[in-house]
Every structure is written in structure tokens, then in C-alpha cells.
Computed example of a mutant assay.
Amino acid sequence: MKAIVTLIFVLFIGLAAQAQENTTEVKVETTTKEIVTETAKENSVARLYRFKNSRVKKELSFKTTKNTAKLA
């Protein structure tokens, strides 16, 4: 008996959900965009550091003070 009542309840909820009318339509505004087929050629030059004490080389070539090997 409990299974029949549960089945009827589930069917009733399903039919009630389908019976609701949803009349609000959402208008979607479309936009057109152009496709660029040509790319601008840009000659970018990497910066080279001429001096030993430049900031980047100095930071990349650091050495720790505790880098020595220990004998047991």
C-alpha cells in the first residue's frame, strides 16, 4: 500500500511540474564581430645585458653560504 501511494505521489508531482506554463521568452541580442585574417608582424628584440653586474644576471647567479660539502 505504501509503495502505491508513493508511486501516485511521485506521478502527481511530475505531472504538476509539467503542467506549468512558462510563457516568458528571453530575447537574445546578437552581435557581429569581424575576423582578422592578417596579423601584424612585430619585430620584438630581446634585451641583452652587457655587464656582469646587471640585476638579472646578479639575481640568477646567486650562491648560498652553506653550499659546502660536509665530511661525516
Rank of each mutant, 00 (worst) to 15 (best):
M1E: 15
M1D: 14
M1R: 12
M1L: 09
A3Y: 12
I4T: 12
V5E: 02
T6K: 10
L7N: 11
L7D: 12
L7M: 02
I8G: 02
V10I: 12
L11K: 02
L11R: 00
L11Q: 00
L15C: 08
L15D: 03
L15I: 14
L15Q: 04
A16K: 09
A16R: 08
A17H: 01
A17Y: 02
A17S: 01
A17L: 03
Q18A: 10
Q18H: 07
Q18V: 07
Q18M: 13
Q18R: 09
A19I: 00
A19M: 07
Q20K: 04
E21D: 10
E21N: 08
N22D: 07
N22S: 10
N22T: 07
T24G: 01
T24V: 09
T24R: 05
E25Y: 02
E25R: 03
V26L: 07
V26N: 10
K27I: 00
K27E: 08
V28Q: 13
E29S: 03
E29D: 06
E29W: 03
T30L: 14
T30M: 11
T30A: 10
K33Y: 02
K33E: 15
E34M: 05
E34D: 15
I35R: 01
I35Y: 06
V36R: 07
E38C: 04
E38G: 04
T39H: 14
A40R: 06
K41D: 13
K41C: 03
E42D: 06
S44W: 05
V45P: 01
V45S: 10
V45T: 11
V45H: 03
V45L: 06
A46S: 10
A46L: 09
R47H: 12
R47L: 14
L48E: 14
L48Q: 11
Y49F: 15
Y49A: 14
Y49R: 08
R50V: 08
F51R: 03
F51W: 04
F51A: 08
F51V: 07
K52A: 11
K52R: 09
N53Q: 01
R55E: 11
R55F: 10
R55K: 15
R55I: 09
V56F: 08
V56H: 08
V56M: 10
K58G: 01
K58I: 00
K58M: 02
E59V: 00
E59A: 05
L60S: 13
S61R: 04
S61T: 01
S61H: 02
K63V: 04
T64Q: 08
T65R: 11
A69G: 14
A69Y: 14
K70F: 13
L71N: 15
L71M: 13
L71T: 13
A72Q: 12
